[in-house]
Design a protein around this nucleic acid. Structure first.
Length: 720
DNA sequence: ACGGCTTCTACG
DNA sequence: TCGTAGAAG
């Protein structure tokens, strides 16, 4: 549930940018003849024309609504153009929309901290940019105000509906305005410019709200659509909220909002004002209560997070009613499809953003009749994520079976022959979370601290590289996906080779091939898999998953204890991990569990890759920006250049034979002994774990805790 | 027995 | 920590 955050001291300028019927625009750009036509994007055309997920404004005039069926839409608007969502592996594939969203983010993130709130929504903190504009070129000093800015809606202005543009111009340039209004005026100009830029570079229109906090900005962005912007001056807040139906507020559109209506008789935000904070806390708990009290007053201290990339990736599908999956074989089939998609996206993320996900989670929905507790939820299960489609598939199936046993519970279901006995899977999804950035070449960063080339330091450039989103540069974005399979096979291949070459006991091949459970297509098979076979006795503990699926042999567990007392500090974006509670003790525990078998290979492979695709634009999140700016670290090198330098000059393995693209495969002979242990300590825990099999056990000095400077993370590193 | 699919946040 | 629920688009 929502939770309140303290408001910051000075007035902020926050914008919320919302793409107009985004999926439709994406399709219209792809097929220009659709532009200006009543259009809707529909998914699963098979049944009743499929379900609408986006509707153009032309079509809305005819009463076409989202949540209509394609057939219904045709009835109310016979000329409507219905465009199908791409399907791959038998399910909707949203990647073209995700990629289009990235294009937009890469533009919007140019003027300030930027948070990607959804596939088509972004929050911006324009406080600094607005303050700067006010100091340098305040609107009152500017003769010609941009046309797009003049089309702004200023809440509280023009209430008689007359003299619009002149009033707006006057409001924006008002010299007697208070500081807050002037800031918002600057924000409006900046947003207008950004929106024009988005239109110019992507052909997409968007709407925006400009206000002093996220809640109000979000509210405003939806007030004048499409392709318009709305400003919420401080003095208009009360008047805006008072008559506003409670359900219009973000977070109050569901049960909480209903409870306010039903239990408290509150129908508008204004009516919420009567309730004391204590009263609300009493009813809804301390956090939600305070949050509600603040909502009523338009107070929201939530920060713009500064995150351009998603925190997780998921792939799922529902199998409604009669289509429910009734056999393990069919579940396995669909899990394989879902995992393939997930794996592709993970590899894409790794390639483009140098991030790895560490947790795999399986969700399922199931029904079960002929039972008292048939409404029981199918439990979700998670385990450490191992890269590679087949590994993910394998792990996902194991998670599913663990969940299924728990779901079916103690009660023994009688099985008749090969007939299933009354259960069905109505939804499956797999997701990858706990995504962390791979350190971008610790030692090359070191170089910058130790007399890096100062001529390279240019703020302009930093903004450009650091904030630039990894936009899929081709509009379709598909190519980058399709290119992934070879790379994946390559990695798998290398993984096998490593096992052989170093004969690592923990990476025994047999383990991966072991059949975990019967894959028979019957419920019996699932039953028998239940308690008998120790290999299949899954609990919800991650370790158990590991024991079965992570290729470990008994002796290897001890190795993991080696770094028990070693605080794990991440060099890259370290402040983020600390802030989010990844304290050393916890990391230590995690390390014991997180031992993927191939992430290290992937990591090094990705180092190589970074120099191989010059078109790639890298992303750096604001967390990382903070880290760098806190030590006034500046560089003209792009992220990938840093990488490249690292690989070329200071190759972790000392072979340094990395040539141009083609010769790369031949340079994979690591000289294990030359791995600098202190560098190892700065890798993500998961990768560290794998390195420990290769590197001699090494005592390591404690790295200072969170020092004032990020330099602390780098300085202890030996610059071999 | 469904709108389908994703992502995020808060809570215990 | 993990697993669940709610919310949104």
């Amino acid at each position: 549930m929502p939770v309140s955050r303290p408001e910051s001291l000075g007035a902020r300028v926050i914008a919320h940018v919302d793409m107009d019927c985004f999926y439709v625009q994406v399709e219209q750009r792809k097929q220009p003849h659709l532009s200006g036509q009543p259009t809707a994007v529909v998914q699963y055309n098979s049944w009743k024309g499929g379900g609408l997920i986006a509707v153009s404004y032309e079509a809305r005039k005819y009463g076409v609504k989202r949540s209509m069926r394609g057939d219904e839409a045709k009835q109310v608007c016979p000329q409507i153009q219905l465009v199908k969502v791409p399907v791959s592996r038998g399910k909707a594939d949203l990647c073209i929309y995700r990629n289009a969203g990235s294009e937009v983010v890469s533009i919007l993130s140019r003027k300030g901290r930027c948070e990607r709130a959804s596939i088509d929504e972004v929050y911006l903190d324009l406080t600094d940019a607005s303050e700067a504009m006010l100091a340098e070129t305040p609107p009152e000093s500017v003769e010609i105000i941009d046309e797009e800015a003049l089309k702004s809606h200023i809440l509280g202005l023009n209430e008689d509906g007359s003299n619009l543009k002149e009033n707006v111009r006057e409001w924006l340039r008002r010299s007697e305005a208070d500081h807050r209004d002037k800031l918002l005026a600057c924000g409006a100009l900046i947003v207008a410019e950004l929106r024009m830029q988005v239109l110019k570079e992507t052909e997409f229109t968007c709407s925006a709200g400009i206000a002093h906090n996220k809640m109000l900005a979000k509210l405003a962005s939806g007030m004048n659509k499409p392709a318009q912007q709305t400003v919420v001056p401080f003095v208009s807040v009360k008047g805006l909220l008072e008559p506003l139906p409670i359900k219009k507020m973000k977070q109050l559109g569901g049960k909480l909002g209903s409870s306010l209506q039903i239990d408290l008789g509150v129908n508008t935000v204004g009516e919420l004002l009567q309730f004391s904070e204590e009263k609300l806390q009493e009813r809804y708990g301390i956090n939600t209560g305070t949050w509600l009290w603040n909502v009523a007053r338009g107070i929201c201290g939530e920060e713009v997070e500064g995150r351009l990339l998603p925190k997780s990736h998921g792939s799922g599908k529902t199998f409604p009613g009669p289509r429910a999956l009734k056999t393990i074989a069919s579940v396995e089939h669909w899990l394989n499809e879902l995992c393939e998609e997930l794996s592709e996206r993970l590899h894409s993320d790794l390639d483009q953003n140098k991030r790895i996900a560490r947790t795999l989670t399986l969700h399922a929905r199931a029904f079960k009749f002929s039972d008292t507790d048939s409404h029981k939820k199918f439990p979700s299960k998670s385990c450490p994520l191992r890269y590679g489609a087949t590994k993910i598939q394998e792990d996902a199936l194991n998670l599913f079976q663990a969940g299924l046993r728990e779901y079916l519970g103690s009660h023994r279901i009688k099985t008749q022959g090969s007939q299933h006995n009354g259960w069905g899977i109505t939804g499956l999804s797999v997701s990858a979370s706990k995504i962390v950035a791979i350190p971008s070449g610790t030692s090359s960063i070191m170089k910058y601290f130790h007399g890096g080339d100062q001529t390279n330091c240019s703020t302009k450039q930093v903004n450009h590289t650091v904030i630039t989103e990894a936009a899929p540069l081709s509009p379709s974005g598909i190519e980058s996906y399709s290119g992934l399979h070879p790379s994946e096979q390559y990695i798998e291949f290398r993984a096998e080779e490593m096992r052989i070459r170093y004969a690592m006991p923990s990476l025994d091949q047999q383990g991966s091939k072991r059949e975990l459970c019967s894959r028979e297509d019957t419920c019996e098979a699932m039953q028998s898999a239940d308690d008998k076979d120790p290999n299949c006795s899954f609990s919800n503990q991650a370790q158990d998953v590991q024991e079965i699926s992570a290729l470990s042999s008994p002796g290897t567990e001890n190795c993991l204890e080696l770094n028990q007392n070693v605080p794990q500090i991440e060099s890259h974006g370290g402040n983020k991990y600390l802030r989010h509670g990844m304290r050393p003790e916890e990391l230590k525990r995690k390390n014991v569990k997180d031992k993927g078998s191939s992430s290290i290979l992937r990591f090094f492979q990705s180092c190589n890759n970074s120099s191989s695709s010059p078109k790639q634009v890298q992303v750096r999140t604001t967390d990382e920006n903070k880290a760098f700016s806190s030590t006034s670290f500046q560089s003209t090198s792009s992220y990938s250049e840093l990488h490249e330098a690292d690989v070329r000059k200071e190759n972790l393995f000392g072979t340094s034979t990395l040539g141009q693209n083609g010769s790369r495969r031949d340079t994979w002979d690591y000289k294990i002994d030359e791995i600098d242990p202190s560098v190892v300590n700065e890798l993500p825990p998961e990768i560290q774990e794998e390195l420990r099999y290769l590197v001699r056990p090494q005592k390591r000095a404690n790295i200072p805790k969170r020092g004032s400077s990020i330099a602390h993370y780098f300085l202890p590193t030996k610059n071999s």
